[in-house]
Amino acid sequence: MILHTVNKSPFSQNTLRSCLRVVSNEDSVVLIEDGVYAALDDSSCSELIKNALQRVAVYSLLPDLKARGIEQRIIHGIQTIDYNDFVSLTEKHARVQSWF
């Protein structure tokens, strides 16, 4: 199991798209930094995450969502986490692949 972190906005880079191409069903994805903009509902990129949620768990770092004023606007099914939860996810996944 691999934990994938994504820190770039899907509106400016293909980082998330590349990640989702190769993510396995048992893996998990964590949106961090500008990567959390992928969590926005009703956006031109929402389908990326909505499709991904059919097969993988997607998490988003709450401090990054709050800092950007979008924590109330996120796609249903994304789980919001704090840093403590982020560490827990790295305990459960043997490897971490950073997409930046």
Partner: peptide, 19 residues
């Protein structure tokens, strides 16, 4: 960039968990 800041918060959290 936010990278150093994110890494720092992550470091604090893992230490708080006893790692």
């Amino acid at each position: 960039y936010q990278a150093s800041d994110t890494a720092f918060h992550f470091a604090e959290a893992l230490l708080a968990k006893g790692h």
